[in-house]
């Protein structure tokens, strides 16, 4: 693992590529990209393992029936994982571990990762999407709600970032 990682690509070129991919996604599927939708479906399945009747009768998860994973976004998410892995492999960036500042503890980093995940899991259901589905895909259609979401998320992120700074300290 001592081979140096390959360089990242130019963010503007990468952005343009993703923009083109997004348009192709709309052309083929008629929907935008998405990631949180897939995770929500997986969550419904997992809760269903432990409390199937409860999930069936839930107002939110219940609307997805008995096979919530039969949904295109689940497959898209699997693809994101696979594609990310291929790219990391080709870029010699596959590396197991916890990414954090040198001076930070693993416990702190993992606590923040978990806490942030729970918040985002909840918030993404509330906004019917995440940065891929709402911000990017909705924003590409110039939907007011998507742009409101993006604005609100970055303002909030900037304000709250100071609380979480230590995890990146070297």
């Amino acid at each position: 693992m001592n081979k140096p990682a390959k360089r990242y690509i130019n963010p503007y070129l990468g952005g343009m590529l993703l923009g083109v991919l997004l348009v192709m996604t709309y052309l083929l599927l008629g929907t935008g990209l998405g990631a949180s939708g897939g995770l929500a479906r997986i969550a419904a399945s997992i809760e269903g393992i432990f409390a199937l009747d409860h999930v069936r009768n839930s107002a939110y998860f219940g609307q997805w029936g008995d096979a919530p994973m039969r949904y295109y976004l689940v497959f898209m998410l699997i693809g994101v994982f696979v594609g990310g892995g291929i790219s990391a492999f080709l870029g010699k960036r596959l590396k197991r571990g916890v990414e954090k500042g040198a001076a930070a503890s693993i416990k702190r980093r993992m606590t923040y990762a978990l806490g942030g995940g729970i918040l985002i899991g909840f918030a993404s259901r509330l906004v019917r999407g995440c940065t891929s589905g709402q911000a990017l895909s909705g924003g590409a259609l110039l939907l007011t709600g998507s742009l409101v979401f993006v604005f609100s998320l970055f303002v909030s992120g900037y304000i709250s970032a100071r609380w979480f700074k230590e995890q990146w300290h070297d």
Partner: peptide, 16 residues
């Protein structure tokens, strides 16, 4: 949702 998402993003450094 945006406010919560922003905090979550800043906290974890990830999005879905």
């Amino acid at each position: 949702g945006g406010v919560l998402f922003g905090v979550g993003f800043a906290m974890s450094g990830w999005c879905p």
